[in-house]
Design a binder for these strands. Structure first.
Lengths: 334, 334
DNA sequence: ATGAAAGCGCTAACAT
DNA sequence: ATGTTAGCGCTTTCAT
């Protein structure tokens, strides 16, 4: 209602009887202005209900104070959670530094993602934090003149800062825990191994088996689509191979596993132990509560934002690769 | 890598031997340009790897093609899902019309929200879709000169378009279903009644009881914090009042209900029927699967975006109030 | 301690 | 069918 439609720095300057330069400097604290003049300017700004036009500011100063986060946030119920927590972490840091966060969705599809990067390129962002949907794509030629930080996953020949989770270590730990409990036929369910994350988790699984002198059995390893139905189907077809434990590295697929076992009244953990990825509230109310690997999602965001801010300050500092540790939370399903 | 740092329309014009006006018109298709000239311009743009500067464009044209969505997206695990689905719906429509979506988080807190609105005000957005965190706040004085659409909830004296869910009808239906199954002592668990949504759900509950000639029992009605622990605690204290069914209008609280009943080995639905709000995948893998009210989240977003686009085209058209229907999904918990 | 003015990259009114 | 040019609102250099 209060119409601040066209109130510019010029109007404020006139009202306060000073130059536009002075108004600008008062706003930005960018050179000395006498107390008296400051008062006048503030008064005028209040009177006119002045709001800075940050578009004009960005155009002139070539700085937008906007950081974009590109990830599969809107794709499925799952990624949502994880990446939304990441976003919350990014946000919490950026806000303290007057930066804004723009969320951009990649749909976990190269074409969609490429489109978004192109679009962001014209939006004058000060930086891009992204979870690439492909490991092979040559992202570099898509980027504009802003720092980029890879989060959660990293493409080949990465020449950027990155903040990821130590998937291999924790996956290995999870499988070792199962082995320690006497399991030798441990099934592995996963989405496509086209991401660094899934690949690392798989490596951890193999490592644990190998160190325990257990030969990996291909019939126990199922790689497929990330969905509840897919997890359910895999579990069904897996049963004839007689596994005693299932390690499922995706939480949507985990729901499929649980739902199938429940439907067939297969007792967990007695007849089948289950370890899943990601700690969401619902994993505590299944029966029994699920043993899961908790990824530090929020912290991932915090770290990425911090690295971004440093990178903006110092474009030539040496590359940083941060690897945060995940935590195995043992509950009754294993 | 490819340095398109400073390539402007001017560079393209020079390279193609035309004026900047022509380049602009080629880009925007805003007046006739001969095929031949068009070719030259496109060639030049390709050669120079030109990318439009949408900041400059926005400044000049006073149009940003950006719509902001302000909601408690990053707040809790729950709202996440619901509002992220809404966001996906908004996005799907906007994308077709070359608009961009900026997600902004209100934290479900007035102060935070006010801050965000102020910030958006300086960002030259073409519209704001929001789920207000307060019913009483005078939002109008915070808004700038752009259309606003209320989504999911509406403040008092709303003078804007709105897109909401018909909570009362579906809540009433859910309670009637419980009554039809013979329940008379039906508990009601909810977060604070400070939102139009929660208020409507409560009204539906009361209506169903009243029409069945059941006097509402205050000891069965628990209003409190939205959290798993809170849902759990409420369930515990509720038990001495001997309800046979629980209607819980928030899904995080629902997890608390489930977890408490499970822990105490109280059979669902035999000793306690449960009906919850919101259809997420995990509601299918609890034992037993949950009867829930499914809100049309994605559709809510679609509708809001459509209304926004119409409103941008026609600022003076009469106010629209859309009320989408929710669906009761009956499963084994009731 | 403050002002004048150029110009960021674009659009669009006014020319021709 | 295309060119010239004045700004959009701001920051910032160069003056004084």
């Amino acid at each position: 209602m209060t119409d601040n439609k066209n109130i510019s720095i010029k109007d404020v300057a006139k009202q306060a009887n000073v130059s536009t330069a002075t108004v600008s400097h008062v706003i930005n604290g960018t050179r000395f202005v006498s107390e008296e003049t400051k008062q006048k300017v503030h008064q005028a700004m209040d009177d006119l209900n002045y709001r800075i036009n940050s578009v004009a500011r960005s155009l002139r100063s070539r700085k937008s104070f906007v950081i974009a986060f590109l990830a599969p946030i809107l794709a499925s119920e799952t990624s949502n959670f994880f990446f939304m927590s990441v976003a919350a972490g990014i946000q919490s840091v950026l806000k303290q530094h007057q930066y804004h966060l723009v969320l951009s969705d990649s749909h976990e599809e190269e074409a969609f993602e490429t489109d978004e990067i192109r679009m962001l390129g014209s939006q004058m962002i000060d930086g891009l934090i992204m979870a690439p949907s492909s490991r092979e794509l040559d992202y570099e030629r898509l980027f504009g003149d802003y720092p980029v930080i890879y989060l959660d996953r990293v493409p080949v020949n990465c020449r950027r800062d990155s903040v990821v989770v130590d998937n291999k270590t924790v996956s290995k730990e999870a499988v070792q825990m199962l082995i320690a409990k006497g399991h030798t036929r441990i099934a592995y369910l996963s989405g496509p191994l086209t991401l660094t994350t899934t690949e690392e988790r798989y490596a951890g699984y193999l490592d644990a088996l190998s160190e325990a002198g257990i030969a990996p059995d291909p019939s126990l390893i199922r790689i497929g689509e990330v969905s509840l139905a897919s997890g359910s189907n895999m579990t069904e077809s897996l049963l004839q191979e007689q596994p005693t434990a299932i390690f499922v590295t995706d939480n949507v697929m985990a729901m499929g596993v649980i739902s199938y076992l429940q439907e067939k009244k297969i007792n967990v953990p007695d007849r089948m132990a289950v370890v899943a990825y990601d700690e969401f509230q619902w994993t505590r109310i299944t029966s029994p509560p699920l043993t899961v690997i908790e990824q530090p999602a929020f912290e991932l965001g915090v770290k990425a934002a911090e690295v971004m801010l440093e990178r903006i300050d110092n474009a030539t500092a040496s590359l940083q690769e941060h690897r945060l540790t995940a935590k195995l939370i043992v509950r009754q399903s294993s």
